[in-house]
């Protein structure tokens, strides 16, 4: 039975790769071929990918008999799920055209990262040490998935803001944009949506850090040990806190705040990848 399940998981993985790629590629095509049905197709592809992603996660859970959250491969699967689920929610709720251009390449590139760097033995459902058997850990990774996913969306919105605001500066807010950014929402809308999404994600990130601290305290008796991963999650947290305050400060609203939002997501990625690959640390689990 596990062989069948494994095959299903592999198949779902390639469906995800293809669907996320097509969703991103078609979105870029709509900049030139401004057809509504193409936009729907791109959204549909993201949806198909999400279904594949969901099945892959469920299958992995059945195979390993535990939440699929304990190695880099499993975490990237859930990370992608978080990004695409929140993207689709934002897309359906707020109808931000061209958001997929900036968001959908992220899950695609994450999957490419798996393909390029992880051999089959790094992807298998392996046994986990006793320290990882904790509900707090499940909660920790779940909140990480939601906050990181949402930060990916605000990253996309931040880039769109910077591009759109530049155009508006050049031609005036009231002018009709005829260029490739014509379908972007107005910069003010992008800014506010980005703030809303960070407003959702910031408490999630905080909860992620807190549940991590609770778990560490149960496992090792230390709620915070300043290992590089913890420290970088704190830096990420500070950047987003700075973003929230920048919006309230004269002269920082708008462009500088948008940059902070973009940098924040780079810090998220560094916390996840950079720390594992560039910095030594204790946080060896994912």
């Amino acid at each position: 039975m596990n062989v069948t399940l494994n095959n299903i998981e592999v198949m779902m993985f390639y469906i995800m790769v293809a669907a996320y790629f097509l969703s991103a590629a078609i979105s870029w095509l709509t900049l030139v071929v401004k057809k509504e049905w193409l936009e729907h197709l791109a959204t549909g592809m993201a949806f198909i990918g999400l279904v594949g992603n969901t099945v892959a996660i469920v299958v992995r859970t059945i195979i390993s008999q535990r939440p699929p959250l304990s190695n880099g491969y499993e975490f990237i699967l859930t990370f992608c799920w978080g990004i695409v689920a929140i993207y689709l929610f934002a897309q359906l709720r707020y109808k931000v055209r061209n958001l997929a251009n900036f968001v959908m390449p992220i899950p695609f590139l994450l999957l490419v990262f798996i393909i390029m760097t992880m051999g089959p033995d790094e992807r298998v459902a392996a046994a986990i040490p006793p320290a990882l058997k904790s509900y707090w850990l499940t909660f920790h990774v779940l909140t990480a998935m939601l906050s990181y996913g949402a930060f990916a969306i605000s990253f996309g919105l931040g880039l769109m803001y910077l591009i759109k605001a530049k155009k508006e500066e050049k031609f005036g807010v009231e002018s009709v944009d005829k260029g490739w950014t014509s379908r972007f929402p107005a910069s003010q809308v992008l800014d506010e949506l980005s703030y809303k999404i960070i407003g959702f994600a910031f408490p999630m990130l905080t909860l992620c850090i807190i549940t991590g601290a609770i778990w560490a305290n149960y496992a090792w008796g230390t709620y915070w040990s300043w290992d590089p991963k913890e420290t970088w999650s704190l830096i990420t947290w500070i950047i987003y806190a700075a973003y929230l305050h920048a919006r309230l400060m004269y002269g920082w609203k708008g462009k500088r705040a948008a940059w902070l939002g973009v940098i924040g997501f780079i810090a998220v990625l560094f916390t996840f990848f950079g720390v594992n690959y560039f910095l030594p640390g204790l946080h060896s689990y994912a």
Partner: peptide
């Protein structure tokens, strides 16, 4: 704090 913490890593 962010910069100093980063240096510490």
């Amino acid at each position: 704090i962010a910069v100093v913490s980063g240096i510490g890593t």
